[in-house]
Design a protein around this nucleic acid. Sequence first.
RNA 1: GCCCGCUUGGCUCAGCGGUAGAGCACUCGCUUCACACGCGAGGGGUCAGUAGUUCGAAUCUACUAGCGGGCACCA
Length: 894
Amino acid sequence: MIDIPKTYDPKEAERHHYARWEERGYFAPEINKDRNAPVYTIVIPPPNVTGSLHMGHALQHTMMDVLTRWKRMLGWRALWLPGMDHAGISTQLMVTRQLKKEGLTRHDLGREKFVERVWQWKEEYGGQILNQLRREGASVDWSRFRFTMDESMSRAVREAFVRLYDAGMIYRGNRIVNWCPNDQTVLSDLEVLREPQKGKLYYLRYPFKDGDGSITVATTRPETMLGDTAVMVHPDDERYRDVLGKTLILPLVNREIPIVADDFVESEFGTGAVKVTPAHDPHDYEAGLRHHLEQISVIDKYGRMTEAAGADFAGLDRYKARDLVIEKLEAQGLLEKVVDYENAISKCERCKTVLEPLISTQWFCRMDKLRDAALAKLRDDRKPRFVPDVPYEKVYSDWLENLRDWTISRQLWWGHQIPAWYTPSGDVIVARTRAEAEAKAGTNELTQDEDVLDTWFSSALCPFSTLGWPDETDDLKTFYPSSVLITARDIIFLWVSRMVMTGLEFMGKEPFDDVYVTGTVLDKHSQRMSKTKGNGIDPLEVFEKYGVDATRLTLASVGSTDTRWSEKQVESYRNFANKIWNAARFCLLNAEGGPLSGDPFADHENLPLHDRWILSRLNKTARAVNAQLEQYEFHGVVQTLYHFFWDDFCDWYIELSKSTVTAEADSETRQIARARLIAILEQSLRLLHPFMPYLTEELWQRLPVGHSHLLHGAYSDSEPTIMLAAYPEGDAALIDEAAEAEMQAVIDLISRVRNIRSEMNIKPSDRIQVMIAATSNLQSVFAASADQIARLTRAEVSIDGNAQTPEAAARAVLSGGAEIAVPLEGLIDFAQERARLSREKEKLQKEAEKLERQLNNSDFVSRAPAEKVSELRARVEDIAQRSSALDQMLEALS
RNA sequence: GCCCGCUUGGCUCAGCGGUAGAGCACUCGCUUCACACGCGAGGGGUCAGUAGUUCGAAUCUACUAGCGGGCACCA
């Protein structure tokens, strides 16, 4: 007897298979020997080197793996390309912290040594997520793994930079930017966190230069007043008509500043007069340009006041300066009032420091042309295709339309140093290499720009830089563009849009056909999981407790809508995994003598009903599964598989096969029944494999089948693995509606008898008798299934339309013209039976009335499709028949 | 402020123009020779509300309410 544990132990299966799959190269598209096979590509949105696996990753990875495994089994050359990004700011922060513990700063080490330290850190602590990817069963091609700081990727970054610069799309300029005083670097708009905060609104009086009086302005940041160069009012504001063009004396500084008119001002807000600090506010910066105002920087890159703020303030922290400004203004009677006020404040996404808008020289990427190309692609070709299209297509295009230039330089040491050099005379040379720059400049006295590029600048190139671009490699030709990008919605801007723009610019083609946007896994209070809230659930712990396969199934069924995390759900899929294990256990315990070759379902016409039925169900399921995967209907496909395996295969097919399969004596009938059972199981495992890779491989390897023959043709010379077995696509010829209808009648009959058993409180161990009278068609169906009906109802079955049934019997009427009687001499309570039948009659009557009403509506009969009308008529007829049979029964009982 | 999504049994979610579904929870009965992470039988929903379109609406349209999200937030 084969020894198989009664309960599935996921850890056991998870321990072995992955390493074997990886070693044997199953993940690489080269395993596929069919040169004409279609290509399927997914480039992973590279997780960052400092990150570790969270639920969102696990969700996306599951879906990517499902699709990759599915296409691979269909014989496609499937490539899932893994990568990782260098996360400039976060990583530098990690290492800086590490140094701090040693009492060092990065400047103590110098740039070169510091970068070395970062590489060391990366080797030691970075990329945790890569092993977690393995744990998930992700079938990524590790041989093509790319890290954004690898030389090949760095080269692509320099190439892209040079090309964009030469095309006039990258420029260096002095503009207002988001500055993080803590990280000492500029940030792009997308890295800014907007958070509401309780603050104050200060009303300040600015006196007129000539004559008495003053204008009151409101501000949340009084310290910036030291850098004010104007006050603005709305041109139509009656209150200020007379003061337009007048001059004010800026308090504390005694600078003369003008009053100018600008539409931007909202007269209703505050006093309707706005102080303008072009050097420390993005809106004021724009206004400053419009009115040719001086830009006076009063705050430096450390968030301290500059010399320009005046001797009293220079060197003070910006918040200390705020207090001092207020104190001094109050002393001079220029503080009108202070009110509580809530507004949104910009913070650094990573370190949460309040950002300081500063004027600074940075590199920018112009977005107009890139943006227009992306928008045109969407408008003309509807590419990329968003799934679901509502609302993401609009989210994407709205964002693109309002796009501003992208700040791409960062004041960091970890990252791609900008390929720009300065000559002694200050000319800028942009080139791929220093040598190229020297040649261009005609001198070797060049200094390279100190800054590095935004990490996203390199990530945006991933869809093609990972494939070898700028070289026209075979990989690039073969695998670009990729088939689908799977991602969470907060990445649409950071990634999707930028990849589309660079893809169109450099490759002339969008980087992926489809963009599938996953839902979000929320906690049970509908809150997003986050580190700061501490409400995150660690996928690794879930793997540990319920197994990887069960977790994958749970995550796959999230699909594209947000879902609250429920451990009960994982538990039910854990139970499903166990159900599969035990179904296989049953098959294996009864496998002896099952033939190894040949199609056990060969003689299709003459198969028993339940065999034709399960074949029909299986093939229908396979077709549905393929269709649903094609449409990214992850939730639906999980339901389809679950229902087929548990309800159709386990609850019915195994039970219907049992008497033959478990017969004591060996026989050809027993052999073939066993072979059929195993064949259905085997195909089911293949259908399930993309979702549950470990369990299915574990079981599949144990099945007594000719494994090699089951491999897809493209992998026929490989070692057998379910990973490379042919994915069942479903044969339409095996779908047999008649068999399904007949089987349904048998199932209904068995259910009705069980219902009688239960309602009449008949002990499971008590044998009963079931007498069946049916119309000729069903009569033969039931007759052929009599043994199975008997077994599943624990009854003696007799089928005879003319037999006399005893009065003391529980009865039921089936749809399609069949009646059953269960003689219950001495056991039956006539009143109870009457009540039961009457309830049933009532139900039928209600339904009949509803149908009659519809059929009596002449509009319905004339306008609804004829098919629909006749369907309803047939139902009415069936109900009438059952109803009158019930009447007879009731009459007999009275 | 602008835009979007969601609202279906106690809970978590499917369905998205033609007889209201699943899992969990609940009730009853089962150590039936794969599985108690199980088997069998049940109960439970006017599909948020209102008005429309339609022969027919949970499903389409508009509005309302509640919840959630995105963008812009004006000092």
